[in-house]
Structures are given as C-alpha cells and as structure tokens.
C-alpha cells in the first residue's frame, strides 16, 4: 500500500468529502470505497463546521486538508497553517490555482509555496501538472510525493495525457505518485494504477454519481484491478495480430 512521508495508508484510493447528497451518503460511500485518506478543506465558519469535523473524525482514516481556491503563495501558506492547527496534521494538499476555467495549477507559485511550507515542517502533497521539470522542482523544494492532474478538476475526462503520466512514472520510479483530479469512471482510475501510480485521488466522480455508494465500490474494485494488473507485468500493445491459438497441429481441411 502507498507510503506517504513514512505513513502507510490502507488503500490507494484517496476520496474527497465534497458534493455528496447528504452526510449519511458520504459516510456510506467512504465505507464502500475503503478509502485510505479523506480530503477536506477550510471555509469560513457558517455554523456547519463543527458537525462536519465530527463526521470526518468518525471516518477513522487520515485526513488530508487542501488549500483549494488559493491563488497566491501567501493565501496558500496561511491556509496551510490554519489547516495544520485545525486538523492536527503536517499533511497539506497544496493547490495554487491561476486559471479558473481549467483550475490548472500555477506551477510557479506552487513551487514557491511548497518550498516555504516544507521549510516550515509541512509534508506537502502538491496538486501539479505532469511536467517533468516542474515535478523535479517540487522535489527540490522538499516534496516527497507528487500529485499530477489526470484532467481538470471535476471534468471527468480521465487521463488526458497518458504518455506524460507514463514518462513521469519512469522518470521518478521511487517517488510516490498520485493521479489527482479528472477521474470520471472506474476505468480511468484503473488506467492510472496500470501505469504504476501509487494512488488515485478523486471526489466528483463518486459524489455526483447517481448512486455514490455504488460508484465508490466500483472505484475500489477498479483500483484494486489496476494495481494487480500493474504488478502482473502487462503485455506490450502491438499493431499486428498475433494468434493466441497454436497453428501447429491444425488439421488440413481445404
């Protein structure tokens, strides 16, 4: 199972807590998913935060707070500091966004925020692109895990750049890698695991499905299948057919 900053989690599925039809369905979806980590956020206290905090504690799995919505290093750092105190964890899913249409990470600000936070003792999970240079800079900044997007958050498009994700895997064989965002279907999650990724982080695909609990189960099965397949060393794709039934011994009939 994946190990992040020395902590082994019970499953390669990391599941978000937003957008479920109800708290009860969220809790049931988490049970069905057997997720190893729950992602959460911080927002202005409007009366519901205390109940939500209890609900999250009851899930009984490690919490990964995010800096969703932050557009600057300062915002992200302050949010991370508040999250560390509130959730009592050095883990932070670092998001610094520039473009609101794609929610594409601002990788320049991301690297800077990752450096500031790492120096302050945080264990940073950066939401990044699959760019090899950016990922290298994030590791230089102190990150020990990388979380490239599959596709824009909430788009459900799957892995937009399997080639890039495969290159990243090959380039950093020893770094825990997580596909974060863009997953729509269990087959997308399976594909990420087949590429050798250590984990998959998703939210919308489960929470906004017609039956979130069933989709949570489907994601868990797909991730398990993809992980098994990667370990089984899949065959290479080829252009021409290669008969699987032996030709030797075939009766001459024509």
């Amino acid at each position: 199972m994946p190990v992040f900053y020395g902590t082994e989690v019970v499953s390669p599925l990391m599941l978000g807590t937003a957008q479920y039809p109800s708290p009860a369905i969220m809790a049931e979806a988490f049970r069905a998913s057997r997720a190893g980590i729950a992602t959460v956020s911080l927002r202005r206290e409007g009366g519901s935060g205390q109940d939500f905090h209890r609900l999250i504690k009851d899930l009984g799995i490690p919490v990964l707070p995010n800096t969703a919505g932050c557009h600057s290093v300062r915002e992200a750092v302050t949010t991370a500091q508040m999250a560390r105190e509130l959730f009592e964890t050095p883990w932070i899913k670092l998001e610094v966004i520039r473009d609101d249409d794609t929610l594409c990470p601002d990788v320049i600000a991301l690297v800077e925020a990752a450096r500031v936070l790492s120096e302050d003792g945080f264990q940073v999970f950066p939401y990044c692109t699959e760019d090899l240079s950016v990922c290298g800079r994030l590791l230089d900044a102190g990150c020990e895990v990388l979380m490239p997007w599959g596709a824009p958050i909430g788009s459900g498009r799957g892995l937009n750049n399997p080639y890039g994700l495969r290159s990243l895997r090959a380039h950093f064989p020893d770094v825990p890698l997580v596909v974060d965002a863009g997953i729509g279907l269990p087959s997308h999650a399976a594909q990420a695991m087949e590429l050798g990724y250590d984990a998959v982080l998703l939210n919308t695909a489960v929470a906004k499905a017609g039956d979130p609990v069933a989709m949570a189960s489907a994601m868990a099965l797909a991730i398990e299948a993809g992980k098994l397949a990667h370990g089984a060393n899949p065959i290479e794709a080829r252009d021409m057919a290669a008969p699987s039934t032996p030709l030797f011994g075939m009766a001459v009939l024509g």
Binding site: T39, L42, R43, E45, S48, F52, N66, A68
Partner: peptide
C-alpha cells in the same frame, strides 16, 4: 477570518 473544517476534494 474564522474558518472551520469543511467539505473538500
């Protein structure tokens, strides 16, 4: 600013 735990992805 006063913030609390909230749902997130």
């Amino acid at each position: 600013e006063v913030v609390a735990p909230m749902q997130g992805g």
